[in-house]
């Protein structure tokens, strides 16, 4: 008769709080909650835009509420965190080979950041000019 009696450990539901790497992963995933809220604020803005100038200006004024400012500050921080993690993992999904060598991770990552900076400046110009 076998004396074997393997012991199975359950993964605790707070596993992601017990190690920094997992916590950062959960913050990355959690960033989506605030980006969802931001998208909903924009969707509401589209509704107000369709209802005329008074409605739209009301929506614009509501964005000046201190709570809204704080919400946007948090959303911005998390959105930037998403950007950083997204760019750092981007090379793993790229399978580009040049002359028998894989394209260097650094090239891919810096390409992403360059595009990001250009896109950001362009957007600021489009709005202000």
């Amino acid at each position: 008769m076998s004396k074997r009696k393997p012991y199975t450990r359950e993964l605790p539901s707070d596993w992601w709080m017990k190690q920094l790497f997992y916590t950062k992963y959960m913050i990355r995933e959690g960033s989506s909650v605030f980006i969802t809220l931001y998208s909903l604020i924009l969707a509401w803005g589209v509704l107000r835009l369709s209802q005329g100038e008074v409605a739209f200006n009301g929506w614009m004024a509501s964005l000046q509420n201190p709570l809204m400012i704080i919400l946007h500050l948090i959303a911005l921080a998390l959105a930037l965190y998403h950007t950083i993690t997204w760019f750092s993992l981007a090379p793993k999904a790229v399978d580009l080979w040049i002359k028998g060598k894989r394209l260097d991770d650094k090239v891919i990552i810096s390409g992403h950041y360059a595009t990001f900076i250009i896109a950001t400046i362009l957007c600021l110009l489009i709005i202000t000019l």
């Binding site: 980006i35 931001y38 604020i41 924009l42 803005g45 964005l63 809204m68 400012i69 919400l71 946007h72 500050l73 959303a75 911005l76 959105a79 930037l80 998403h82 950007t83 997204w86 760019f87 992403h112 595009t115 990001f116 896109a119 950001t120 957007c123 600021l124 709005i127």
Partner: peptide, 14 residues
Amino acid sequence: TAFLTPVMILITGL
């Protein structure tokens, strides 16, 4: 989201 959401939040929200 990675490329544009930060600048969008910056403009419309702040």
